[in-house]
Design a protein around this nucleic acid. Structure first.
Length: 187
DNA sequence: CACCCGATTATCT
DNA sequence: GATAATCGGGTGT
């Protein structure tokens, strides 16, 4: 499967969020390949009060101001990591797409082991959960997702517009009405 | 299954 | 010193 190139991310953050639905997230760890179909995303830009980048560039969010196609990874609520793909057009300073959920394809047993559970439904159906399942932590901060390595994103399945559900984002207290959340309902 | 709430720490004011 | 782009366990229906 072909890796998505830089150009894929050189675009409006909200559009990239939608386009990432159906793509394949690949994590290589301990010589094992863990993959899954991206099924849920959310867009965040520096013009958006809910984004970490709204307050300006800081040590924490600097990746979102950097080159498109890299990973912005943050730690929150004392115990969770979340993965974003940096994406923005030339009109804005910073932007990222939060990968909220994936459907596991390869390496399911490894994911179950790293999560400490056997359930398939609860394995990667949340940003903190998929980060734990795929061993995503600050070691991968800023990594280039357009090159083969420990973490990258490839082409995936084609998803029709009418299979994508658009809703407001969740878990935030500002700009709660922006319809910037995209969900692919496989079942 | 729905709702409530505590955990736990990096980051910013 | 307050907050957070969350999760899971507990309780009650």
């Amino acid at each position: 499967m072909k890796i998505l190139d830089r150009n894929f991310y050189n675009s409006d953050t909200v559009k990239v969020a939608k386009n990432l639905i159906g793509k394949i997230l690949v994590r290589e760890v301990d010589g094992i390949k863990l993959t899954g179909i991206i099924t849920e995303t959310e867009a965040y830009t520096n013009l958006d009060p809910a984004s970490h980048s709204f307050i300006g560039k800081t040590e924490r969010n600097k990746a979102m101001y950097g080159q498109n196609g890299h990973a912005y990874i943050y730690f929150t609520y004392g115990n969770h990591f979340c993965l974003n793909a940096v994406a923005k057009d030339s009109n804005i300073q910073a932007g990222g797409v939060l990968i909220r959920a994936i459907k596991p394809l390869e390496g399911i047993e490894y994911m179950q082991k790293s999560r400490g559970i056997n359930s398939l439904k609860n394995l990667t159906n949340g940003p903190g959960k998929l980060a734990q399942a795929l061993i995503i932590n600050k070691d991968l901060y800023g990594i280039d997702l357009t090159k083969k390595g420990p973490l990258y994103i490839t082409e995936g399945i084609s998803v029709a517009d009418n299979q994508i559900l658009i809703t407001p984002r969740i878990g935030i207290s500002k700009a709660i009405d922006y319809p910037w959340r995209f969900i692919y309902h496989i079942d």
